[in-house]
Amino acid sequence: MGKYDKGILGAISGKVGTVVGSRWKGIRYLRSLAGPRKGVPSIAQLKQQARFALGVQFLQPIHPLIKVGYRTQIRKQSPYNAALSDLLTTIIEGEYPDYRINFERFRMSKGTMEPPLNPVVNYENNQLAFTWDNNSDTGDASADDQVLLLVLAENMWPVFDIHSFTRDNASGTINLPDVASGQQLFCFMAFVGSGDKKSVSKSTLVGTIIVP
C-alpha cells in the first residue's frame, strides 16, 4: 500500500484502473484492487469469518459508547477496531458455528482513570438504579467525570447512557424496554473525563440481575 499527499492529477478517490484511492484519519493512500476469490473457503477461514461477523454485529449498536470508552486505545487502532480485537481474542467463546459473547468478560472501556468505587445496581419497574461512592478526591478522579452505563442481555437490544451523570452525583438511572421475567441483565459502568480530560476508567461489571 502506498501513502501519498497528492496524486499526479490531484487526490485520487475511488477505483482507477487496478488501484483504489482512499483516506483514513486524514492520510491518503493507494491500494491494489482485490482480485476475485478463488476456491472454496477453508474451515479455518469460515471460523474466522463467523467470529468476525458476530463481533461486528455485537458492536454496531453500541458504537457511540465504544468510541468514547476506547478513545485512549488509538495509537495503532481506531477505538472500534481496538474493541473488536478484544472481542475476537478474549470475549467470543464457543465452537464453530455456535459462537457466543461472554457478557461477564466484556469490556466497554479501557483506561487507567480511577474506576467506580463500591458500585451497586438495583432493578424496579423496568428501570435500573445505579449508585456508587463519590471518590472524586482520589487519584486522578474529578467531580465532573462523566458516567457510562450499559445493560446487555440475550435477545435484547443493548441499552446505554453517555454523559447524563457525573461522578459526584453518586447515582444514576437507566430505563429499559419491556423485558421478560427471568431475563438476565448484565450491568456495566465506567467513568470518562470531561472537557480536555481524555482519560477513561476500565469498565466494571456492577452486577447481574434476574428480572422478577
Rank of each mutant, 00 (worst) to 15 (best):
V159T: 00
W157Q: 03
W157G: 00
T173M: 12
H163N: 11
N169G: 04
P158S: 08
V179M: 04
A153K: 08
S181E: 07
I174W: 02
L148K: 13
R167T: 09
H163I: 02
N135P: 13
T138Y: 15
D144Y: 07
G172W: 09
W132M: 12
G172E: 07
D178V: 05
L150N: 01
P177L: 12
Q183S: 15
V147Y: 04
A141M: 12
A180Q: 01
T166A: 06
A170Q: 06
A170G: 06
D161L: 12
L152Q: 08
Q183P: 00
S171C: 04
L149N: 00
G139W: 04
G182M: 01
F160S: 10
G139M: 08
D168N: 15
E154V: 05
Q146M: 07
N134D: 15
M156Q: 02
D168Q: 09
N135R: 12
V147K: 05
V147W: 08
L149Y: 03
V179G: 01
Q146S: 14
G139Q: 08
T166P: 00
I162H: 10
M156P: 00
H163Y: 11
G182L: 11
N155Q: 08
P177Q: 09
D145F: 08
S181N: 13
G172D: 00
N135W: 14
N169L: 05
V147T: 15
T166S: 07
R167W: 12
T166D: 11
A141H: 14
N175W: 14
L150A: 11
L152I: 10
A143V: 02
R167N: 07
L148G: 12
I162W: 02
